[in-house]
Simulated assay, not measured.
Amino acid sequence: MAPLRPTDPSRIAGYRMLGRLGAGGMGVVLLGRSAGGALAAVKIIHPSYAQDAAFRERFRREVRLARQVRSRYAVPVVDADTEALAPWLATEFVPGPPIGEAVDRTGPLPEHSVLRLGRMLAEALEAVHTAGMVHRDVKPGNVLLAPDGPRLIDFGIARALDDTVLTATDMVVGSPGFLAPEQARGEQPGPAGDVFSLGCVLAYAATGERPFGAGPVEAVLYRTVHDTPRLDALPGPLRPVVAHCLAKDAARRPTAAELRALLTRDTPAEGWLPAPIDRLIAERSARMLALPDIEATRVEPAGPGATTAVTAPPARPHWTRRRTLALVAGAAALTAGSTTAFWLLGVDRPT
């Protein structure tokens, strides 16, 4: 998390801003804390987009639809103001890493983890599709890992942004290497496109490689449309399921509900991740426990000549080795007990 910049708001509605989670051409994502102490990722749309009446109408519609998604594996919208000069929305927050980072740092996931991952993400997509939405950008960076299961982020809202900005300039909507052939051709994707993308994510999680390779965007898109995916490195039970998801013909792919049934297996959610990823989650959770204190209360002067009374800020804790160990130990409880999920909407993480 990066520090707030002078141009960033210190408060939005009932949220105090703590730092920057990311930024992009359409806006900025800040970490906020509600009056009750809950953390939220707050996305602030740039006012220039808000001046577009068509964009604002799509934004209203997608926020409304996103609130209807009911899945423990899909991040919910918890607050929003679609009528503000700079429209914003907030989602729940957890500090779990995205699949891409986890694979980069710890290697591919074991077979049982990928099977469980696929089943839970299929359940999330089923809820998104039931709400009348299409995700359109299922990729490793949009799936966060937590001890009690993955969290699908960016659902629905990305559709409002892309309809206004990307589609208007004839750009492909989605992430090359994880989008469906119909998306690569510039066509409007449906739920089957999300299933194709999920198949690509599962192949990547299990092998660390994209099923249509890497390289120039044009080459990846061509292979997505015309070539057979490379699935030889996939474990036996996964290969036919992923191949089914990656059918070129959208009508031949399973629905999200059918995919969930295909991946049904007696694998408990608890302990579904390998130990190195559990440690990565704990490290991130520990950093969240070290967030800044609530600022001191300020009282404005009562009249001319009066002085401003400022309460003394709470003393910074003395960081002993015992306290540091307790912080790390508490990380697991923060992650396991949290109902919040990390959310980024079409922006880059600060480096």
Rank of each mutant, 00 (worst) to 15 (best):
Tyr49Asn: 10
Ala50Ile: 07
Ala50Thr: 00
Ala53Arg: 14
Phe55Gly: 10
Phe55Asp: 10
Arg56Gln: 07
Arg56Cys: 06
Glu57Asn: 01
Ala66Gly: 04
Gln68Ala: 15
Arg72Ala: 15
Pro76Tyr: 09
Pro76Asp: 11
Pro76Arg: 12
Pro76Glu: 01
Asp79Ser: 08
Ala80Asp: 13
Ala80Val: 01
Ala80Arg: 06
Ala80Phe: 07
Thr82Arg: 03
Ala84Asn: 12
Ala84Thr: 13
Ala84Phe: 12
Leu85Tyr: 15
Leu89Phe: 15
Ala90Leu: 07
Thr91Arg: 12
Thr91His: 07
Thr91Met: 14
Glu92Leu: 14
Pro95Asp: 12
Pro95His: 02
Gly96Asp: 05
Pro97Gln: 11
Val103Asp: 01
Arg105Thr: 14
Thr106Asp: 12
Glu111Val: 08
Glu111Gly: 02
Val114Met: 07
Arg116Thr: 10
Arg119Glu: 15
Leu121Thr: 11
Glu123Asp: 14
Leu125Val: 12
Leu125His: 02
His129Val: 08
Gly132Tyr: 02
Arg136Ala: 12
Val138Pro: 10
Lys139Cys: 00
Lys139Tyr: 06
Lys139Ser: 13
Pro140Cys: 06
Gly141Gln: 00
Asn142Glu: 03
Pro147Gln: 05
Gly149Ile: 05
Ile153Glu: 06
Phe155Cys: 09
Ile157Trp: 12
Ile157Tyr: 01
Ala158Arg: 05
Ala158Asp: 09
Arg159Ser: 13
Arg159Leu: 10
Ala160Ile: 11
Leu161Ala: 13
Asp162Asn: 14
Asp163Phe: 05
Asp163His: 09
Thr164Phe: 08
Thr167Trp: 00
Ala168Gly: 09
Asp170Gln: 08
Met171Asp: 13
Val172Lys: 01
Gly174Asp: 05
Gly174Ser: 02
Pro176Tyr: 03
Phe178Arg: 07
Leu179Val: 08
Ala180Phe: 03
Gln183Thr: 01
Ala184Thr: 07
